[in-house]
Design a protein around this nucleic acid. Structure first.
Lengths: 337, 337
DNA sequence: TTAAGTCGGTTAAACGTTTAACCAAATATT
DNA sequence: AATATTTGGTTAAACGTTTAACCGACTTAA
């Protein structure tokens, strides 16, 4: 790249100091500089196609107007939709966003945080994998502005914006109960991730409150990395035996996708034999040939609130804010309607 | 954020010059510095949790190790998948990526380019909207390293990595012909976007080569912003009248989605009455209850090649490289298999 | 008449790195 | 013994901004 035009170049051409050029171009000290000269400087700047060097400015001002976003996988529609919302909200405030994917890997997450901080981002939006408490605590110690989104750690007093996962799961199970289900199973990941723990807790609580069985055999947990075979096995177990489940809650959209794909091949009729509730909307089920319900996350609010919270946190340093949004239960009939 | 540890702090603690600390931490002039002192410096740096200030380094070295990515919408699964691949490839080379969404809007695209350049990105990966030739030309003049991906401008001699859209459409139509279709329609966007023009060209060429009708009434174009109603109308026209189409090519995944959604409500049997080919894989059709074919883009290669090309372009300045990859025709039966 | 503002700028330091150029002391070469 | 080279560092400038502090020339007010 050819060398770019700098303040100094403009200053030389106009015959003033670089300081003055800086003042004019930043509209500072407007009263202290003559209209004509200001005009002249602006013209020359435009004429030379001047563009500020943000890196230099950042070094001086200690502000990059950049936020770092770390999600588990930007290719996951949930996170890319979230990213888009964050991008828009950030853009409105002249912020730019750097993203990276942690792959649910704590070590990688740590490296990404470091990389972003090395680049002097003004703050972070994180959807942390399990076992990252220490990293988050370090951020607090270093007083880095950040907000967790979607995931958070119950023991840590941090900013976060997330779903009320307990309540959403509770609501989901109640829906199944109201629909007449007596034996309600759940398929979730075998993970420490707090939001999934909460969903489990909500599931169990709803069953207990309605005096329905909440045994170990109704709750299946599969490893977050392994996929189809383990899922099929778990579902098979839930649906076989003397007392098969007549209601099933999937704790995550990937699980629902794999699970429903399998169930489709079984001689099980939905909703006669089995009713389903998923977490998260997923396009992939748009044409699923049976009705089911799902918990819809308020994605827009999640992203917008997280971003605003972060910007506030960067510009002032207010009390930490913790937000749990309600999920909405949506019923979906097979298309066409 | 508390003030961070700088080279100077380390230098002071060890009792050497900042230059030496810089040399040691960057492993430069290794022979010119004593083992013990180097060791000491490293220890102190680690002990103080030193982290380099990339902004300062960038100012000095004129290199940010950052690339800018502009797509039309990061929430679009096609682009988020691409973004993920680019991220991974970039990360392997210590690069970080800033993304933004242009919304197919040329003016916005221009602003985004400027913002990214202000931030001194080392290069750009762009999937430009229509009417951006001027912006691309400016990039060339300014000698900014960049590569276009997915989209490109036929008249501009720029780096790009894209599908052979002509060939892919040709292949798609030939598939329909081989399957026995006699009247093959196409639904596309009414746009200047070159890649869509190419798909149209491939469609027409295949029909002509096989002596099939390629009339205006078989080719429907809808505005890229308007959606469902216009699409339904177009499809209705194609399927009604004395000679309805028996084969249909959708030029983009959004069109296919909307179109198939509508077709599903019609008394038209797929594939008996109508055979379908789409562009791009889309999860949303995973459970579509009828068979269809689609052109699968080699997303991984697209992303990887684009990134590598850009990095080469940043580090050396080679001849411009233009790559057209082949799409693959994939047949899809309704699930379960 | 003098002190105090105001006007319209300039000077210079600083942000945290990198890196070419320099230097003194020790060692090697003739 | 005189000269050259190596060793192990230091100095200082530079990257492109921002911004507090300063300054001389006018104006205004007492």
């Amino acid at each position: 790249m050819e060398r770019k035009v700098s303040l100094k170049d403009i200053a030389q051409k106009v015959g003033v100091s670089t300081a003055l050029v800086s003042y004019v171009l930043n509209n500072k000290r407007e009263n202290r500089v003559s209209k004509e000269l200001a005009q002249r400087i602006r013209e020359v700047a435009a004429g030379m196609n001047y563009r500020i060097n943000q890196v230099a400015r950042s070094l001086k001002t200690n502000k990059t107007f950049t936020i770092g976003l770390i999600v588990s996988d930007i290719a996951n529609p949930f996170f890319s939709a979230l990213a888009r919302i964050i991008e828009d909200e950030a853009e409105q405030h002249q912020y730019t966003v750097i993203f990276s994917s942690s792959d649910e890997n704590a070590a990688k997450n740590g490296k990404l945080i470091d990389t972003l901080l090395d680049r002097q981002v003004d703050g972070l939006i994180l959807s942390p994998p399990a076992f990252c408490e220490d990293q988050v605590i370090r951020l607090q110690q270093q007083q880095v502005p950040f907000v967790l989104v979607d995931r958070y750690f119950p023991d840590l007093k941090t900013n976060y914006v997330a779903l009320d996962n307990y309540g959403a799961a509770f609501k989901a199970v109640e829906h199944l109960i109201e629909s007449g289900c007596k034996r309600i199973g759940m398929l979730t990941y075998d993970t420490e991730l707090f939001h999934l723990q909460e969903r489990k807790r909500g599931y169990v609580a709803a069953l207990k409150q309605h005096k329905l069985p909440a045994t170990k055999s109704l709750l299946k947990e599969v490893n977050i990395r392994v996929e189809q075979p383990a899922i099929e096995k778990a579902i098979h177990q839930l649906l076989s035996g003397p007392e098969p489940v007549d209601g099933l809650l999937f704790a995550a959209n990937n699980l629902a996708l794999a699970g429903l794909r399998y169930i489709r091949t079984l001689p099980v009729h939905i909703p006669r034999d089995l009713r389903i509730v998923n977490f998260d909307e997923t396009e992939a089920l748009d044409f699923y040939p049976a009705p089911f319900a799902y918990i819809q996350q308020p994605l827009g609010e999640l992203g917008r609130l997280a971003t605003r919270l972060l910007l506030e946190s960067i510009n002032q340093r207010p009390a930490t804010t913790q937000i749990n949004l309600d999920g909405q239960l949506v019923l979906k009939s097979p298309m066409p309607f």
